[in-house]
C-alpha cells in the first residue's frame, strides 16, 4: 500500500529512506540516489522540496512551454495525494513501478490508467484517437484522418475481443501480453544504475546499505 494518502500526513523528504525502501523495489542506497534526482528537479523553479507540474514538464522536455497531454497525465498519476504537487514519497513510489524489477502487473495497471484518460475503467475509441493525434502533433508527423482511423480500426479489431467498442482492463492485459513492446516505456533501465548516475548520495547517506 505504497503511497497510501492517509498513511503519512506530512510530506516526507528523506526522513525515512528505509521505510521507502520497504515500500518500493528500491534499496536504501537507491532511494538516497533517487533523492538527489528529486532535489534537482524540485528546485528548478521553486526550491521547496516539491515538484510542481512546471518543474515536471521542465525535467521531461527541458522547456516549460510545452503542452503535453501525456506529461499531464503522468503527473496526475504520480500525484496520488491529488494536491497538484509531488513530494518525494509520491515520486519514489511511482518511479518504483518503472523499475526493471517491478512486477509486470503493476506496469500493466499503470499503463491502463495512463491511457484511460477519462478514468472510466475502460479505454474508448475517442481516447485512443485523442492520444494518437496528440503523439503525431507532438512529433510533427502528419497522417491523414483516414490513415489514423484505419490504425485505430485495426487496433480495436485486435484488442476489443468483447466487441463493445472499448478496451477494458482484461482486454488491455491480453493485448500487452501479446505485444510486450507496448510496455517498453514502462521500464526505465536508468533506475538500475541510479546509484552510479547520482553518486553524490553517499555524502548524505544515513545508512550503510
Amino acid at each position: 500500500n505504497c503511497c497510501d494518502a492517509d498513511l503519512y500526513k506530512q510530506p516526507r523528504g528523506l526522513e525515512d529512506p528505509e521505510a521507502l525502501a520497504r515500500e518500493t523495489v528500491f534499496s536504501v542506497s537507491e532511494i538516497e540516489a533517487l533523492y538527489e534526482l528529486f532535489k534537482k528537479i524540485s528546485s528548478a523553479v521553486i526550491d521547496d522540496g516539491l515538484i510542481n507540474k512546471e518543474e515536471f514538464q521542465l525535467a521531461l522536455f527541458k522547456t516549460n512551454k510545452k503542452e503535453s497531454l501525456f506529461a499531464d497525465r503522468v503527473f496526475d498519476l504520480f500525484d496520488t495525494k491529488h494536491n497538484g504537487i509531488l513530494d518525494f514519497e509520491e515520486f519514489a513510489c511511482a518511479l518504483s513501478i518503472f523499475h526493471p524489477n517491478s512486477p509486470i502487473d503493476d506496469k500493466i495497471e499503470f499503463s491502463f490508467q495512463l491511457y484511460d484518460l477519462k478514468q472510466q475503467g475502460f479505454i474508448e475509441r475517442q481516447e485512443v484517437k485523442q492520444m494518437v493525434v496528440a503523439t503525431l502533433t507532438e512529433s510533427g508527423m502528419n497522417l491523414s484522418d483516414d490513415v489514423i482511423e484505419s490504425i485505430i480500426d485495426k487496433t480495436f479489431e485486435e484488442a476489443d475481443t468483447k466487441h463493445d467498442g472499448k478496451i477494458d482492463k482484461e482486454e488491455w492485459r491480453n493485448l500487452v501480453l501479446r505485444h510486450p513492446s507496448l510496455l517498453k516505456n514502462m521500464t526505465l533501465q536508468y533506475l538500475k544504475d541510479i546509484t552510479t548516475t547520482f553518486p553524490s548520495f553517499v555524502f548524505h547517506s544515513q545508512v550503510d546499505d
Binding site: A59, L60, F61, A71, D72, V132, E138, V147, N185
Partner: peptide, 25 residues
C-alpha cells in the same frame, strides 16, 4: 493502404511518455 502499426505502439512513442528524460536533469 492498410497500416500495420498498433495505435498504442504509436502512442508509446510520445516524448511525454518517455520518463527516461527525467534522468538527464
Amino acid at each position: 493502404q492498410p497500416v500495420a502499426m498498433n495505435a498504442f505502439e504509436l502512442i508509446s512513442l510520445s516524448k511525454g511518455l518517455n520518463l527516461g528524460n527525467l534522468f538527464d536533469a
